[in-house]
């Protein structure tokens, strides 16, 4: 099995689906001729032709809307919003149209589009190239929200998303594109090739939407994480010397609540980690769910480790980023509680 980085895995997913299904097409800003700002669509236009993979004007509202219309009439468009920070002009179409078409047509029409977008920090992108806006979408009934953390899952989840009959947004942690980043930012970058999850089948397979994965088993406490923070949480567990169970949620909506509850009931403690700002972040929802489902099993207050409630700072990247030291501190606090 070839070792792929996350970009290659995503590219492979689109290639596999374009080969299998003539209704799958890929478009967005710079995705065709140029091959995508992060090269995720490289070679697709050459292989599948201009009508299957092409460049769109810089017009996110128009891009999302065109994809909804295509989907309503039987195509399966995969669109790239170049950075999650650029998604806001398309938000109206995502919320008011893509997410709601099925309900208001009583199932007659759907918008089976897949929206890929790189998100998150750790690359000194400043406030307009680093954001994690996933909670703006998990708050909206009618769309699925997916965040892969490794090449194997990225390919399997993207194929599952393309085959899914609902609109799916995939937030791709761009700091993980080329290697698993555990938050110790002064260490040399490690490539995916050294990580077991870089073994990616070349053909078709899926990782089901709505299923979390226990990536590190443990008995002391449960960490709920997704995207880059899956790797940070594992590094933090080592650093803190805590026998933490780390759950990679993989899909935020629909949430795999069974896996979460089973783990928290076992450990009795819970730390939630995300890179997005704290207030009304997805961690708030997770915290509410855990206390609703596991209240009598909890032995300490639930802890959240998140970005601060500030715009993403350029100069204070590592102060903002909830790195392994902050997560380890939270783990220790929760163990003392």
């Amino acid at each position: 099995m070839p070792a792929m980085n996350m970009i290659q895995a995503l590219n492979s997913a689109m290639d596999v689906m374009m080969t299998r299904d003539p209704n799958v097409l890929v478009f967005g800003e710079d995705v065709g001729y140029f091959g995508g700002v992060f090269r995720a669509t490289e070679g697709l236009q050459k292989k599948h032709g201009l009508t299957r993979c092409f460049d769109a004007p810089i017009a996110e509202g128009g891009i999302v809307a065109a994809a909804i219309g295509m989907g309503a009439y039987g195509l399966r468009p995969v669109i790239e919003i170049q950075f999650a920070d650029y998604i806001y002009p398309g938000y109206d179409q995502i919320v008011s149209e893509a997410a709601r078409l099925r309900y208001r047509s009583a199932g007659d029409f759907t918008a089976p589009l897949t929206l890929r977008t790189p998100y998150g920090g750790g690359i000194f992108g400043g406030q307009t190239h680093s954001q994690s806006p996933e909670a703006l979408f998990t708050h909206v009934a009618g769309i699925k929200t997916v965040v892969p953390s490794n090449p194997y899952d990225a390919k399997g989840l993207l194929i599952a998303a393309i085959e899914d009959d609902d609109p799916v947004i995939i937030f791709e942690p761009k700091r993980l594109y080329n290697g698993p980043f555990d938050g110790w930012h002064e260490n040399p970058v490690s490539p995916w090739a050294k990580h077991p999850d870089s073994e990616v089948p070349e053909g078709h397979y899926t990782v089901p939407l709505g299923k979390a994965k226990v990536v590190r088993e443990g008995n002391d406490l449960t960490v709920l994480a997704y995207g880059t923070m899956v790797h940070v949480a594992q590094a933090a567990a080592v650093h803190a010397g805590v026998d933490a169970e780390v759950i990679d949620l993989r899909t935020l909506i629909p949430i795999d609540i069974e896996t979460v509850v089973a783990s928290v009931k076992k450990t009795g403690r819970c730390v939630i980690v995300h890179e997005a700002t704290r207030t009304s972040g997805f961690g708030a929802e997770l915290s509410a769910l855990v206390q609703e489902e596991c209240f009598y099993h909890l032995e300490a207050p639930i802890a959240r480790v998140t970005g601060w409630d500030t715009p993403y700072p350029h100069a204070f990247e590592w102060e903002y980023f909830p790195g392994p030291q902050r997560v380890a501190d939270a783990m220790k606090r929760v163990m003392e509680g």
């Binding site: 097409l25 009508t51 509202g61 128009g62 809307a65 065109a66 994809a67 909804i68 219309g69 295509m70 989907g71 309503a72 009439y73 039987g74 195509l75 109206d92 179409q93 008011s96 149209e97």
Partner: peptide, 18 residues
């Protein structure tokens, strides 16, 4: 949503051409 359908219709037209 005022105007949103113009953009959706453009996508439908794309599907026709495709």
């Amino acid at each position: 949503i005022v105007g949103a359908q113009v953009s959706l219709g453009t996508g439908i037209a794309f599907a026709n051409k495709y």
